[in-house]
Design a protein around this nucleic acid. Sequence first.
DNA 1: TTGAAAGCGTTACCAC
DNA 2: GTGGTAACGCTTTCAA
Lengths: 326, 326
Amino acid sequence: MARAAGLSIATVSRALNRPELLNEDTRRIVNEAVARLDYRPSVAAKRLRGNRTDLILVVVPSLSPFFLDIFAGVEAAAERAGFSVLVGHTDRNSARERLFVDQVGASRADGIILVTSVDLPTLTGMGWLPPTVVALDVDGGGGLPMVRVDHVAGAEDATNILLNLGHTRVAHILGPERSGMTRHRLEGYQRALAARGLNVNPDYCVRGDFTVESGVAAINALLALPSPPTAVFAANDQMAIGAIRGLRRRGLQVPRDMSIFGFDDERIAALCDPPLSTVRIPTFEIGRTAMEQMLRLLEGAAMEHDLVLPTELVIRDTAAPAPDRA
Amino acid sequence: MARAAGLSIATVSRALNRPELLNEDTRRIVNEAVARLDYRPSVAAKRLRGNRTDLILVVVPSLSPFFLDIFAGVEAAAERAGFSVLVGHTDRNSARERLFVDQVGASRADGIILVTSVDLPTLTGMGWLPPTVVALDVDGGGGLPMVRVDHVAGAEDATNILLNLGHTRVAHILGPERSGMTRHRLEGYQRALAARGLNVNPDYCVRGDFTVESGVAAINALLALPSPPTAVFAANDQMAIGAIRGLRRRGLQVPRDMSIFGFDDERIAALCDPPLSTVRIPTFEIGRTAMEQMLRLLEGAAMEHDLVLPTELVIRDTAAPAPDRA
DNA sequence: TTGAAAGCGTTACCAC
DNA sequence: GTGGTAACGCTTTCAA
């Protein structure tokens, strides 16, 4: 103990936390002793008293690059506030999710940020919940603080780009059934068409499952139509890339023969050939905002309980004017 | 406090930690009380006594997808041992790295896994160091426990594949200067050639900087040679993809007109067109092994101080027999 | 088999 | 301004 400094234990504590209360001399003495003994306050003891850990647990369903930027955002905001970030992933397993929540219950962390909860209803049904913020879930719910993104508006924007380029036959490759994301993105597509008085041709809505292969299959189905589209909005980048690949295999070029738009702005979108026009989800900002919400929650400050962040169009090289306009 | 269970504080503690010492009845009483009060032991208090946090800090230079699998490996091993994982990134900033090390010094975590240290020499020069494992650094050093990967052997294997396909004019696109990784991969390339009695044509070694663009530039330089190579081993996937792209722009096809080999097996390698043959770095295993080393370090158990993991060839579609053999 | 009590390193309250 | 001390919630001797 730093009482080898010849001073009382209380004084040392003050010197470290509220130096302004002390004599300059005493302060100096303490500082010297600290330096001499290479003394570091025990975080554990501080926690025992303060009942806080300055730790936030971020739980993701899977460790995909997509969540990396979210994490980066959380970390940025956390660091500024003196928090560190614990990471866990649930493997989309609801039991694991509950386990993590319990960890926080056991005061291993001050709060938990759930990036896309696996099973929100069960969670909110569990009597007590630690301070929780849900990020990126499509559907609101549970009355927990949320940070989300407007998939409908994003899809509408993307479709509008295609429409503004003069395309009138614009198809949509949907995501898997029963996914809220799929539903929202489809809705955005429909809205954009409706706003122009165009009606949705059911043949132009083909189902995929978010994989590259399903994109290839979808474009083949579209091409087999008596009157194929001239532009395609895919519900994610992978399927958009599949579409481009399918087109290329038939000797068709993007965007000369067909315009393509994706969604997500995954890393590969910028790297593929040609670079894909797509819709960016503000991942970093979602992470940052979620952490900021957490800080407010922890302080008991007033807060907006459902924050919706806008997406952003990323125009690259896969969308060109419609052929009759070119 | 669970002394509402009518028992002494010590008994409760025992019931939770060493139930075998107790009467079955008492044990039951405690369990009931625990359930009734939804009691959770305070981690903070436990730590104060035990002087450990059951936390491991993983520090990466940047938040790239590459480190994701490493993290997954660390987490897998950590979870099994009852540890949680804290994540930090240094932005390649040596001061930040020292900061994280200090965090551990302040007993916020029991140990630190440095995934590619920014500044190992400074660190080892800092008098005291917390339990530290270094993962993925190319050069050994500092006497710290290391988990590494054999870049030389990986590069040699890749080059040998090309050589075995009958190519005699095999070029290499190097990474940036002053990178240990670049040096090792170049060495592997040279070794493979030397083993066949081939000598290294300096024109066939062109410098890149690990970006797609530099790959395009490199392939252009190679193609401009009086006698261009028929196969290219690029020091990473990005440059390999750049090479493929450059080739395609000139109407050349891979692997028909040129064989290409990458290094790293990034996600994009499987997704690009055609899927890239490359060398996989066992990222998950590196993470797991590093954490296992950490566990040994913490226990003071005997351990190998420099573990080198093998790379793995991933044969996809970008390498074909040499033209005169086809 | 169980209970009492010391001690872990802080902070915060109250005296001096 | 500074020192004494209780309290935080646990583990771990030591006694009973």
